[in-house]
Design a protein around this nucleic acid. Structure first.
Length: 150
DNA sequence: TAGGCCATCTGGTCCT
DNA sequence: AGGACCAGATGGCCTA
């Protein structure tokens, strides 16, 4: 379904989540592992007859509420990724980054900014920092952000 | 078409 | 007990 965390507000997202839950009986959304498995069906409806067990089927709590919370949690995680992404300069600025790219580039950018502070220059500070350090223990590879700055 | 990325569901575990 | 967090499984979408 691919809900865009950037364009939808929090309240809109919640409305979409619960609308989806009310429309579906747990196996919604095109994807979803064992959503159509026998086990997952057990928890879908609150057992209208009021009987605790049907044969050897185990009684499980309804998953809809839990699934909604999990989707909301994922939404929050994605919001955090988006916030972090907005702090990373790229060319072009709106370039699409995967989550792992966001993590790695953010880490690299922090290192770059740290070197900028330590060397006092914006002209390839990571490279300069490498040579200025007498006992450099960490390896510094070519810095993306050093290459970018002119 | 294979591989990467992602959203979703699910069950388990930990925390309050 | 209920919620938060996490990892595994699964299937859809997109791109080279």
């Amino acid at each position: 379904m691919a809900i865009s965390s950037s364009s939808s507000s929090f309240s809109n997202y919640l409305m979409a989540v619960f609308a989806q839950d009310s429309n579906s009986s747990g196996s919604a959304s095109g994807s979803g592992a064992a959503a159509d498995s026998e086990d997952s069906q057990i928890g879908q409806e609150p057992n209208p007859g009021g009987q605790e067990n049907q044969g050897n089927h185990r009684r499980r709590p309804p998953r809809q509420k839990i699934n909604a919370r999990e989707r909301y949690r994922t939404f929050n995680v994605n919001s955090a990724y988006e916030a972090l992404r907005s702090l990373i300069p790229t060319e072009p600025m709106n370039r699409k980054l995967s989550k792992i790219e966001i993590i790695r580039l953010a880490s690299s950018y922090i290192t770059h900014l740290s070197s900028t502070l330590e060397t006092g220059t914006e002209c390839q500070p990571c490279l300069l920092h490498k040579y200025e350090s007498e006992r450099l223990t960490r390896r510094i590879s070519i810095c993306t952000f050093c290459l970018k700055t002119k």
